[in-house]
């Protein structure tokens, strides 16, 4: 029994390596925030492209749908490997190269790209659900006031859609944050890799347990926040019927 306990909860080992693990987790947080913000923006752009009106733009819509379908269906790990294994060898112009002035290793940016590409597709679907949940009368009212499709989207539909899906988007962000650990396979020194290195030299998993605890310190409050937002949003829905309407 003690053996088992010690294997995962060796507090001495945790204390000894606390700073290293925390440094790794800090990289995890940076990766999550950069990729999370980019995926939120990229997903929104995809969702808007998918809703463009008219026949001439059909190819754009189809290309967007194909992109979303593909990257929702391909494992993130494979996307990471495809990017990191071949991007350095592609003949790209210098402007498209990894930004070095931020002082992050190339693997950090490969991770950002893979996470943005994959989670952009997930989030595009969440945004789409939000856009479709906005009553059609809203678009009609905006259009009848002379607004273009773009103006109606920007001023009327998207503000309401984003509000409706804020909680599910936050859920996707939590999932993205956990998936940043996959970037450890290309040797980015984030929390999982740091924990694994300690594990293989100490023959003890407690550093990984510590990493997991750090995750929980962030993800649990976020999950609670999601729950509260959902309750609030449902409250809003139940009050959408105007007072005095038959």
């Amino acid at each position: 029994m003690n053996e088992i306990l010690n294997q995962y909860w060796d507090f001495g080992l945790m204390a000894e390596h606390f700073d290293e693990v925390l440094d790794g987790f800090w990289i995890t947080v940076q990766l999550s925030i950069v990729a999370g913000v980019l995926a939120l923006a990229w997903g929104l752009l995809l969702a808007v492209l998918r809703q463009l009106p008219g026949k001439p733009l059909l190819p754009v819509r189809l290309a967007t749908i194909a992109y979303i379908d593909v990257f929702r269906g391909v494992p993130l790990l494979i996307v990471i490997l495809l990017i990191s294994g071949s991007l350095p060898f592609l003949p790209l112009p210098e402007a498209l190269r990894i930004p070095r002035w931020l002082g992050k290793p190339d693997t950090f940016w490969y991770g950002v790209m893979a996470l943005t590409i994959t989670y952009g597709a997930y989030m595009a679907e969440v945004y789409r659900a939000g856009i479709e949940a906005v009553a059609p009368g809203q678009t009609e009212a905006a259009r009848s006031l002379g607004m273009s499709h773009g103006q109606a989207m920007r001023n009327v539909v998207l503000p309401q859609a984003v509000r409706k899906v804020f909680a599910p988007l936050l859920n996707d962000f939590i999932a993205l944050m956990k998936d940043t650990t996959l970037v450890s396979v290309i040797a980015l020194n984030e929390v999982a890799l740091v924990g694994r290195d300690i594990q293989s030299s100490a023959f003890n998993s407690s550093a990984l347990t510590l990493g997991a605890l750090m995750f929980l310190a962030v993800t649990l409050p976020l999950a609670r926040l999601v729950d509260r937002l959902i309750v609030r949003e449902q409250g809003r829905f139940s009050r959408t019927a105007p007072r005095g309407a038959a």
Binding site: G137, E140, A141, V156, Q160, P242
Partner: peptide
């Protein structure tokens, strides 16, 4: 419109 369609 019948349903007002104000921007909520």
């Amino acid at each position: 419109f019948q349903q007002f369609n104000l921007f909520p």
